[in-house]
Simulated scan of single mutants.
Amino acid sequence: MSILYKLTVFEPSGEKLLDESFTAENDGQAKEIGQNLLNEKNYQDQTHRCVSPAGKLLLFHR
């Protein structure tokens, strides 16, 4: 069963640069997919978070 996760990237001002949903089989796979998306879009050093539907924080950078 696929689970829907949310990846959000922010400017210091709070403006959203990326607000993307994706599916994964589990939290581990979601963390990997989220990190790959950040790297592909060159957002790995921006403030970001990746959360599960239950609100569990999988990735966070401030």
Rank of each mutant, 00 (worst) to 15 (best):
L4W: 03
N36R: 12
L37E: 08
V51P: 01
S52F: 03
Q35K: 12
N26M: 08
E32Y: 01
E32W: 01
L37D: 06
E20Q: 15
F60L: 10
H48T: 04
H61Q: 14
N42F: 07
E20F: 10
I33G: 04
K6I: 06
A54W: 03
K16H: 01
Q46K: 13
R49G: 02
L57N: 04
E15Q: 15
G14K: 10
G34H: 01
E20S: 09
L59D: 07
F60R: 08
D45T: 06
P53V: 05
G14I: 04
G55F: 05
K41C: 00
D45N: 14
C50N: 10
S13N: 15
E11F: 13
N36I: 06
N26Y: 07
S52I: 03
D27N: 07
L4E: 12
C50E: 03
R62C: 02
E20K: 12
E20A: 10
E15F: 12
G34E: 08
A30W: 02
L58P: 04
H48V: 02
Y5A: 13
L57M: 09
H61F: 14
V9I: 14
L59F: 05
L58W: 10
Q44R: 11
A54L: 09
Q29T: 04
T8K: 14
F10L: 13
T8I: 15
D19F: 05
F10W: 15
D45M: 08
S13D: 15
T23R: 13
L17K: 14
Q35M: 12
N26L: 06
C50G: 05
D27L: 01
L17G: 05
S13C: 11
K56T: 11
L57W: 00
K6C: 08
K41M: 05
N36Q: 13
H48K: 02
K6Y: 11
I3F: 00
M1F: 09
K31Q: 10
I3G: 01
E11K: 15
L59V: 11
G28I: 00
E32C: 00
Y5G: 07
Q46W: 11
D45P: 00
L17M: 15
K41H: 08
V51Q: 09
T47Y: 10
L57D: 02
T23D: 15
L57P: 00
V51I: 15
K16A: 11
G34T: 02
I3C: 01
A30R: 02
L38V: 03
V9H: 13
R49I: 06
K56C: 00
K31N: 01
F10Q: 09
A30E: 04
I33N: 04
N36T: 09
G55I: 04
L59H: 05
I33V: 12
H61P: 02
P53K: 09
F60Q: 12
Q35F: 08
Q46T: 05
D45S: 12
L18D: 03
E15M: 14
K31I: 00
A24Y: 07
F10Y: 15
L59N: 03
K56V: 08
R62T: 07
I33M: 08
A24P: 03
